[in-house]
């Protein structure tokens, strides 16, 4: 899985030591005449938390949607563990190991918390084969149950397991969304504003969970987040987007002292 293949655009960006995660190359997304994301390249390798920040409307969610296959990019490529997945749908990318959460927490609102979390693993196992979608062999049942229990415990959702997801508070819904993608056992996680709606204690807990997932499973995380304290705390590397363009990339301390980044945010405020 970690075998690397240089993409045609990737050769010159080969300086990055580890590409065995998600790699976007010259990604461009246009909606009609508007360019939402303009030729951005970045990697989100395994074993570290990568930040993607920028003012609202900078194109972060669009980038996520293009990476996870919900949007077809107008140009550029997306590769997962060296395999070009630009033409692949979201389900195929998920089965290759890419998981994501949603800013708007797209839970299965009429299902219980437990069912929601279990589907993180079960949807992947069921895949695209008609028989596998119908037949649930005991071994898979066991694997799903184990993954569900782990994720519920990690996210402290044991008490709510029988609750209907649609009836939960925003903070709890965030955690269900996270637990679901954790149960899936994905190698790269795209987390879209996972801490919005969480209180301080929940945010701290969330930071710990991410730390554990990266440390224990070697997962890679690409994090879109507006809580800068959290971003600075848990990200090793940060990409800054503004108006669809990558304006800066560096370590948290470099981002913190960058005039470009400050201008991007202030410019957005003034504009």
């Amino acid at each position: 899985m970690t075998h690397r293949v240089d993409t045609e655009h990737g050769a010159d960006a080969a300086a990055a030591a580890d590409t065995s995660g998600l790699r976007a190359t010259e990604l461009t997304v246009r909606f009609g005449g508007n360019t939402a994301v303009s030729g951005i390249s970045f990697t989100a390798p395994r074993g570290r938390v990568t930040g993607l920040i920028g003012p609202n409307g900078a194109g972060k969610t669009t980038t996520f949607n293009a990476c996870s296959g919900l949007l077809a990019p107008s140009a550029g490529r997306v590769a997962l563990f060296g395999e070009d997945v630009t033409a692949r749908g979201p389900a195929r990318r998920a089965r290759l190991g890419l998981g994501r959460t949603f800013q708007r927490m797209e839970l299965f609102d009429t299902l219980t918390v437990e069912e929601n979390v279990a589907l993180g693993r079960e949807a992947r196992l069921a895949g695209s084969h008609p028989l596998r979608q119908v037949v649930n062999p005991p071994a898979q049942r066991k694997a799903v149950r184990a993954a569900t229990e782990d994720a519920l415990e990690l996210c402290m959702l044991g008490q709510q397991r029988r609750a209907i997801a649609g009836s939960l508070s925003t903070g709890q819904r965030r955690l269900v969304d996270l637990a679901r993608v954790l149960a899936g056992g994905f190698s790269v996680l795209l987390l879209d504003e996972p801490s919005s709606g969480l209180d301080t204690a929940e945010t701290r807990r969330f930071g710990e969970i991410i730390g554990r997932v990266v440390a224990e499973h070697g997962s890679g995380v690409l994090l879109v987040e507006h809580d800068m304290a959290l971003v600075m705390d848990i990200c090793e590397h940060i990409h800054v987007l503004d108006f669809g363009e990558l304006v800066f990339a560096g370590t948290p301390s470099e981002v913190r002292s960058s005039e470009t980044v400050r201008a991007a945010y202030l410019g957005s405020e003034a504009g």
Binding site: A91, R95, G99, L107, L119
Partner: peptide, 18 residues
């Protein structure tokens, strides 16, 4: 899977289901 499909097909596909 069907009940989840009714709630949010897009999410279900991002979890790996065809």
């Amino acid at each position: 899977l069907l009940r989840a499909l009714a709630d949010s097909p897009t999410t279900l596909s991002t979890l790996g289901l065809g």
